[in-house]
């Protein structure tokens, strides 16, 4: 049994199905990326798996348990989330934001134990944001915020990390560092990762498995090598002007 199993899942908002009949599974230590054109349903799928919206049919099983019927606390210990929404957190310091990751572990009043604090500092060290600890979360750059939120997700010690376009605000150095940290931790800890990515070159490098989504359905699930062949990327994104060169992972105008 895999850690995360999505079985014939359809999801969307109110009466509109955005993406239907999705099935795939993810094991611990495995990184699965979702790629596909804008509006294909990646974010909807991510929001469904992370229970922010309800599924319309099918099942999402985490460790064999339906994610929608798990207790909030139990689910939060298994699953951490990083969204494109950068959060509000006005007046909070970065350390306080990271320490929110310990929420499912702390007691009634949310007081941090020494161990909780250690875990937070360690997570911040991994994400190279230790020096931001006392800065205000609203007064740092978008890229820094993204790394703070990753530290928060790491501090949550999940079995599954769900990331919606985690690298979109990062410069090239931090894109690489971000994905390196993720890859290393995912193997070492180990935890499973489901991420949507727009950068195809990065998706190729980091993924164990790629789920290609097109027009509200899963078009192909395969290893990066199999997905990036035979002009499939051009076809997936409907590229007509220009070309994605799969051997060099470059866009050719």
């Amino acid at each position: 049994m895999s850690l995360l199993e999505i079985k014939k899942c359809s999801c969307g908002y109110e009466n509109k199905t955005v993406i239907s009949d999705v099935s795939f599974s993810v094991d611990k230590g495995e990184i699965v990326t979702l790629i596909g054109p804008n509006g294909c349903g990646k974010t909807t799928l991510i929001k469904t798996v992370s229970t922010l919206i309800n599924n319309m049919s099918g099942e999402v099983l985490l460790d064999g348990k339906n994610v929608f019927s798990m207790k909030e606390n139990e689910r939060a210990r298994c699953m951490a989330l990083l969204l494109t929404d950068k959060g509000q957190g006005e007046g909070s310091t970065c350390f306080e934001v990271v320490s929110m990751g310990r929420y499912p572990y702390t007691g009634k009043f949310g007081l941090l134990s020494k161990e909780d604090k250690e875990i937070c500092y360690e997570a911040m060290r991994l994400c190279d944001v230790s020096d931001l600890a006392e800065r205000y979360f609203t007064q740092i750059s978008d890229g820094q915020r993204q790394r703070i939120l990753l530290a928060r997700a790491i501090a949550q010690k999940p079995d599954l990390m769900i990331l919606d376009e985690p690298t979109s605000f990062l410069d090239v150095k931090y894109k690489l560092e971000f994905l390196n940290i993720l890859k290393e931790l995912a193997k070492k800890t180990p935890f499973a990762v489901v991420a949507s990515l727009h950068e195809l070159d990065l998706a190729y490098q980091v993924s164990d498995k790629i789920v290609a989504i097109k027009d509200g359905r899963v078009d192909r699930i395969a290893s990066p090598k199999e997905v990036f062949t035979g002009g499939y990327i051009d076809e997936l994104f409907g590229i007509t002007k220009g070309h994605f060169e799969e051997e060099s992972l470059k866009i050719i105008l």
Binding site: S50, T51, L52, E72, N73, R75, A76, R77, M79, A80, L81, L83, D85, G87, Q88, G89, E90, G91, S92, E96, V97, M100, G101, Y103, P104, T106, K108, F109, G110, Q156
Partner: peptide
């Protein structure tokens, strides 16, 4: 007070930490 502090980050994040 515990959920209040998590809620300050926004609804989605509060939900994701339980």
């Amino acid at each position: 007070s515990k959920p209040l502090s998590a809620y300050a980050m926004g609804e989605n994040y509060a939900k994701s930490v339980g």
